[in-house]
Structure formats: C-alpha cells, structure tokens
C-alpha cells in the first residue's frame, strides 16, 4: 500500500512538472497579450478583459488537462478579442457623440441663418410694397390701377400702364410663391351686363400684360365684378372715377387662392 502511495505521489509530482507552461502556443499568446495590453487606449477601455485574458493564460499554463488547456487558450484569445472589440466600440461611441454635437451645432447655425435671411426677405418685401404704393388688405396687399390707365370705354391698357405693372411683375419674380388675384370694377353708368363684361376684360388685359412680362399665367386669377363693388359714390364724377379701377391683390402665403369662376 505504501508503495502504491509513493508511486502515486511520484506520478503526481511528475505530472506537475510537465505542466504545459512553455508551449510555443502559450509563448505566442503571451506575446499577443503584451502587445494588446501595451496599447494605452485598450488598457483604458478594457482593463477587465485584459485581466481575464491574463488569468486564462495563467490557467492554460498550469493545467494538466489537455481539453482544459485548449479551452483556456481559446478563452484567452477571446478575451483579447473582446478587449480590442470593446475599445473599438468605445471609440465609435465617442466619434458618434462628437459628430452628433457637430451636427446639432450646424443645424442651429443653419436655422439662425435661415431666420436672418427670412427677416432680410421681409425687409425687402416691405420696401418693394412701399414702392408700389400698395395697401394692406386682409387677403394680402393690394395695388389699385386707376381707369386712366385704360383707353376710355375700351379694354386695352395705355403704354404707360406697362411701367406701372412692371413693379408688380418684378415683385412677383422675387417672390415666386405668391399668387395674385386681378379684379376689375366699373362705375354704374352703363348697364350691369356691359359693366361686368368690361370689368372682366380689363382684368384680363392686366393679366395678359403681366404674363407678357414673364409671369406664369397659373399664378394669376382674373375676374370682373362690374359695378357690384363700388368704393365710392356713383353720383359724383370723382366717385365714379374711383370706382373705375382694377385691383391687383397679392395674396399672403397662407391665403388660399379663390377658385376661378
């Protein structure tokens, strides 16, 4: 019995001496471990996994079980892989954070610029409207063309009316999103039907003049109201003169254009 025990002890001791501490595989792994743990970024981000890799390498170096040895080698490699992967992920996270900040900054800057440009736009608009002697109405701004711009009793515009309309068409070119309504009106001297037709034709003449100056006809709605909407008394000549007019209303952006009749 003693002999058996002694033999067993010898066997155990010899087994211990043959622990695979010096295999080339382990030497390689230790070298990789040193290389990976030498990188400060990895040390800073993945100390836990470096420690685990180190432990696994130690276990591989001291086990006698071939399967356990293979397992610890595998785990050590994986822990080193994790250390690198986690470091890369943390770096990506920081990059995304930085880019998000940059993105938000640019967005704020762009918004500020847009607001500044919108307010400049408004100033320009105000100046242009003042130049046109436009009046503000609920629907937008209104420019009134007096009947002196038309040949008496006819529907064609006199040549100087073109200049008057050029301020309107310039405005429309600068503000391509605006739509306008051209409305013709007369006094009440002739019969109602004639007046309506005359006012329609005069509104149309204005529309055509604007189209000739390069404005898209789809942006212009023209209609004639005849004598139905006087702005002054038809009993005096001055009143009648004020009633004979073409109104051009540049609708505000929010205003939906009325459907053409």
């Amino acid at each position: 019995m003693k002999r058996i025990l002694a033999l067993l002890a010898v066997a155990l001791i010899s087994a211990c001496t043959t622990a695979p501490n010096g295999t080339p595989e382990l030497a390689d792994l230790r070298a990789t471990y040193r290389a990976v743990s030498d990188v400060p970024e990895i040390r800073a981000n993945a100390a836990y996994f470096l420690h685990q890799a180190d432990e696994a390498i130690k276990r591989a170096g001291s086990t006698f079980d071939a399967a356990e040895y293979d397992h610890q080698i595998y785990m050590a490699r994986r822990y080193l892989g994790m250390a690198q992967a986690v470091t890369k992920r943390e770096r990506s996270k920081r990059e995304v954070e930085q880019l998000t900040d940059q993105h938000n900054q640019l967005r704020r800057k762009l918004r500020a610029e847009q607001e500044a440009s919108a307010s400049r736009h408004t100033e320009v608009l105000e100046a242009e409207l003042a130049a046109m002697e436009a009046t503000r109405v609920d629907r937008g701004v209104m420019v009134t063309l007096q009947d002196v711009l038309f040949t008496l009793g006819r529907t064609d515009l006199i040549p100087s009316a073109q200049d008057e309309l050029r301020t309107v068409s310039n405005f429309l070119r600068n503000h391509p999103d605006r739509i306008l309504v051209v409305e013709g009106h007369t006094d009440s001297l002739a019969n109602t039907n004639y007046n309506r037709v005359l006012s329609e034709r005069r509104a149309n003449a204005v529309k055509h003049a604007l189209v000739a100056q390069g404005i898209d006809p789809d942006r212009i709605i023209s209609r004639g109201y005849g004598e139905a909407r006087p702005i002054a008394s038809n009993r005096t000549e001055t009143g009648r003169q004020r009633n004979r007019r073409v109104e051009i209303v540049i609708l505000t952006e929010s205003e939906t254009p009325p459907s053409s009749e």
């Binding site: 994790m82 992967a85 890369k88 992920r89 996270k93 995304v96």
Partner: peptide, 18 residues
C-alpha cells in the same frame, strides 16, 4: 463578442450617416 461587434457596426453606420 458578437454583441460588441454588432454594437460597433451599428455605431459605425450611425457615424457614416452623420
């Protein structure tokens, strides 16, 4: 490891989009 790799890949995609 798969989870970390996938997280990293998604972050990289986000980075490219940004």
């Amino acid at each position: 490891l798969a989870i970390i790799k996938a997280e990293t890949e998604r972050l990289q995609q986000m980075r490219r989009q940004l």
